[in-house]
Write a protein that binds this DNA or RNA. Structure first.
Lengths: 212, 212, 212, 212
DNA sequence: TATGAATGAGCGTTCATTCAT
DNA sequence: CATGAATGAACGCTCATTCAT
């Protein structure tokens, strides 16, 4: 009983371990730059072992994206399910959450990097991946904007995809900033506070300024 | 004599031609995926010729980033020099320009992609590159925000880097969107109009809503 | 007890089963092309099991050749022991038998293929093997030719190895044909009948034609 | 002029050199056993060079078979064109030629070996190859048999493919013998003389013996 | 200045073999 | 007796780089 279960547990855990290690290597070096041998070395095994579980580097890469893409989407959805309060409060919570995740989640950074860098080599996987993260976030935003507009809380014209994308865009900056300067943590709190303030007050001291 | 000067012209034009061809290959395939032979083939020469002007693929890559990074920066600066009108008008013009460039300039897309994909392999070159584009745009924005705040046109608190980054962020979306779906052109005009409207009116129908 | 003897029977039968399965794989794919895992899979066991009975793929291959080579030789000898009638009748029976075996016995084909393909890798084993089949058949023929010549039934000069080889050669064609076109069964009956007729009548209408 | 022609000559000669070297390696070790590096080493170059001329080991193998198959067929046809004398004389000359070639031509041996060993891996190439050698020889024989039968020189029934194959079969023995025992040269002259004698006189001292 | 044949280090992948269970 | 996860040597193929022409 116990005898078999040790190996079995190992075997069942391996694919996830490999995907995790591969994620790190791919994120750091890109698809071509990552060596299967180095992925294996992260687990303390040799490259042959990787091929026991994945038939090729390509398939492994796709598994990495699918695994973490699904994971990110699930986590976002879980968070959305917990939003509470009126529509303005919920939108604020969503924006804060997206900003905080973008700034702090290493996986998100890596996914974006890989999606951009390898889009030509794995178009379908990455398309799926991209829809599951950036597009998905925009859609969540859009729902709340529509709800708020319908309730008369927001201006009617903000119930648009363009607004949703505008609200989500600062997260791209956070992700990008994390990618380019991983050692200079962003001031997320200040950043998101400023975003919310802009949304509330706009740029101008005089409300409904004529120009711009 | 004439022959000589044709040759000379050729010789002097070659590095730039090679950098241009290399840019296209690198943008399409990444640093590792691009073959020196294919870069040469774009010019109708053979790979040996590339090595007459650049000692290695690495150096060529750095030259590509530096050349186009400087080019982009110069173009942005040139545009900024032509801004006119009051501060609000100039900010609007800048935002429109950044959005339009981000949506339509293939070189911008490629630079961002390469910067992200190869950041680990060429950290210094890309750091420089990144500062010359994204950071630079944010700084230009910030100047105008500070000017507007000082003049009392904008809220005082918007004279911050965080605001500048927020304003610039939608451009990242446009670049990203162009990278991921090059065949589905974005609705830049509608997108930028919505950004400007949000900046003017904020989200809420009731000005100065208490929460958010 | 009963369980034990079942196991024992299993254990004793295993080497033969493995050799049989290996023969099929080797015949189909060659020594290098055959995978130990596939040999094992034919028996419904895993590759570790093969190594319980054979220390290496090489040894297994040698066992395959020796086993089936001996088997073929034994079957030929058994048949020869049953030949009856006068020497001409016995020679005819032998020729028919060799032809029919060559055309119909899959094992013979496989042995010849393996002998030819792997002769450099296993020179001794295959030398043995070859002597046990082709050379052996020629020797059996030669005995009968010598007996017939001594009895004055055949021309004296046919009591030679060269004649024996000539008589045996058509079998090579049948084997080869079966190897190359396994789905186009040869017309063995017509083929052997024609061989016998040639042996009886020669090529020419005028007996003892002067030339040729 | 001279400058370029040295390299050009080299380049034009290379494919043939590589095919020749590859033929030797493939014949000795089989397709899987032959290493591209060893093929290159026979020419004093490195494996990269082989790939300048052939895109893969598979293609190189096919080129080897096609090159030498065509070569053998051409040589046989050339010889047939020079046959002279009456039909019996020409048949004799053809048989002698086929026997001598089979015994002495290393290329023929290698082709047969490769055809047999790699038939599953390269079915079409080898089918073509086989038709160009063995089948082709039988057809040449058949033509003469038909001519002789029509002329009333040979028995009518020998104008059959079965007879042709019977006449050609001893060549298979010579080829096979050369493959298996390259250091024991066959007694071709005696062997072929015996074949011809059998064809003329048959086996029996009494012409038209009743049985067999 | 330009060529392109040649090099050789490097990596993806396979598979015979081992051994802890 | 049997398993099958793990190993690691081997090989096909690629491509940046060199250099004789």
């Amino acid at each position: 009983m116990v005898k078999g279960s040790v190996r079995k547990a190992r075997k069942e855990a391996r694919p996830a371990e490999i995907v995790e290690a591969a994620f790190q290597e791919f994120a750091a070096k890109g698809f071509l730059g990552a060596r299967v041998e180095d992925i294996a070395a992260r687990l303390g095994v040799t490259k042959g072992t990787v091929y026991l579980y994945f038939p090729s580097k390509e398939v492994l890469f796709a598994a990495v994206l699918d695994t973490f893409g699904a994971q990110m989407r699930r986590e976002t959805d879980d968070h959305v399910a917990e939003l509470h309060g009126d529509v303005a409060e919920r939108l604020e919570q969503l924006i804060v959450h997206l900003n905080v995740s973008s700034a702090s989640d290493q996986r998100l950074r890596s996914l974006l990097v890989l999606s951009i860098a390898e889009r030509e080599r794995f178009p379908e996987v990455i398309e799926r991946q991209f829809r599951a993260t950036v597009d998905h976030a925009a859609e969540l935003c859009l729902s709340l904007l529509q709800e708020g507009a319908a309730a008369g809380v927001f201006h009617a014209h903000v119930a648009s995809r363009n607004t949703a994308l505008t609200l989500v865009s600062p997260c791209l900056w956070l992700v990008l900033s994390g990618v380019m300067h991983p050692n200079e943590p962003s001031d997320v709190d200040g950043f998101v506070a400023q975003q919310l303030r802009l949304l509330r007050d706009g740029l101008f001291r005089e409300p409904s300024a004529p120009s711009l």
